[in-house]
Write a protein that binds this DNA or RNA. Structure first.
Lengths: 254, 254
DNA sequence: CCATCTTTGTGCACGCGTTCACAAAGACAT
DNA sequence: ATGTCTTTGTGAACGCGTGCACAAAGATGG
């Protein structure tokens, strides 16, 4: 033992684990619901159940933010909502641009989830000249030529890419060059970006394929209940595990 | 103490790590692109670059599937496409139902990614009677009343929920009761399902909030002042985050 | 003020996933 | 055949995330 290895090179102090960050929005949602019902306090057990996680995990997550609970009582809902919102940076306004106003882009523009939590759709951008000026979700679509100007004029740092795969990297490059440092990518492509730029991808195709894998597994277990000779173990499988982990894989088909 | 919990001997053999399963679709997409360009073989290094992962990780991933590579040469593209497709269960046809044909549901229905890889939209279901019969993406929308019948008649085991949050759990329960054992959930809700049912969720709001967290982190490192108006687009070198501790004051509001 | 009861915060151990580094395996040239 | 060169497949170490189990902290009641 005495691993004596480098004890904390850095990455601590304000370093909240990525897995925890990914769960904060989940807690926030549950807390907001409680807040709307005017529930004053909530225990880790209750909140964990509402968020679909283990209570010990939740307490540990909160411990990274500080000690906001009261032993014997629980957490103050309003206070926690504020703390998490602040930690996630939702107390400020984030202008967002959506590039690629096809079916998906339009759906995103109409998605109420944006406006509700500090996010504001600053502009909709599409490469099709015929789309220019046409209002989607009450916002007129602008042409790709305006991309750089829009980003700069609005101080946009978060961009959403909902273009076909072929255009994604090019759009990404332009967004980054114009100053965007966080990208949510719905296109089925692996984007390459310079250091300092965050990319998260969301893809239906990958999610479905993962489901298909497990589905096939389940189907195979029933019919082939011969060699294993360890039937009890099946319940342990991946069963009803909720959200994946810190990251959401994504890849759409061409 | 001394719980000495027996370390699961099972979960091996056919047990491909979840993290690996999540990457297989990524490899498959890269391989398909190579296949279309008639590239016969590919090295782990090249394929890893195309998929955006580490080559050692890729090789280990493939090692769970078996030894499909040739040392000194690489992997046979076509063969690997087949093996991964088979492993993911994509060599068979998966009928899928989409419930909730709003903006998002319609976008999903129109999404070409379904048909392209073993997935077939068997039906579109919506609770609004006015939608019934109306074709979306060439498929007539059916009313929720038909849900159970549709599931059973088509042998559907995978369901996509694109309803408002309030209806999601109810729809989920009905899908499960009718025989669906895999669910892709787009509604911002934590679904509770019985053991044996897989749920994967895709949540735009959460993804954006995670981006906002990192964005705030980046912005906070430079200066506390700056409101929007980022200087020239030289967002290139912002890396080196994780500044030395003690730089972030613990603002404690009243 | 003390006893009891509830719930937080966390030390600890465990298992999974990632990465390094290298021996084994095979292609290819001579 | 033999040697060299390329690339796979994997043993081993490491670090992160998870969950248990419990002591500390504070509320509550007498």
């Amino acid at each position: 033992m005495a691993t004596g290895r480098t004890h904390r090179p850095a990455t601590r102090s304000r370093g909240i684990p990525e897995a925890t960050v990914a769960r904060l929005p989940l807690y926030l949602r549950a807390l907001t619901a409680l807040s709307e019902r005017s529930v004053p306090t909530v225990s880790s057990e209750e909140l964990a159940a509402a968020a679909g996680v283990n209570s010990a995990k939740l307490r540990k997550d909160f411990s990274y933010l500080g000690s906001y609970g009261t032993r014997g009582v629980g957490y103050d809902v309003e206070y926690l909502v504020y703390q998490i919102s602040r930690e996630l940076g939702l107390t400020q306004d984030w202008p967002v641009v959506i590039v690629g106003i096809g079916n998906l882009g339009a759906a995103l523009a109409n998605y109420g989830g944006f406006a509700s939590r500090g996010f504001r759709v600053a502009a909709l951008i599409d490469a099709d000249p015929a789309m220019a000026g046409k209002p989607v979700a009450g916002i007129p679509v602008q042409h790709t030529d305006e991309l750089e100007k829009i980003i700069k004029d609005n101080g946009v740092s978060i961009g959403v890419i909902a273009t076909p795969a072929g255009a994604a990297q090019q759009v990404c490059d332009r967004l980054v060059a114009a100053g965007v440092t966080s990208i949510l990518n719905f296109a089925p492509t692996v984007l390459s970006v310079p250091d300092g730029v965050d990319v998260r991808k969301v893809d239906l195709s990958i999610e479905l394929q993962i489901l298909a894998f497990h589905e096939q597994r389940k189907a195979g277990e029933e019919t082939a209940a011969g060699d294993g000779a360890l039937p009890a173990a099946t319940a342990r499988e991946a069963s009803a595990d909720q959200g994946p982990d810190g990251d959401v894989p994504a890849v759409m088909p061409a």
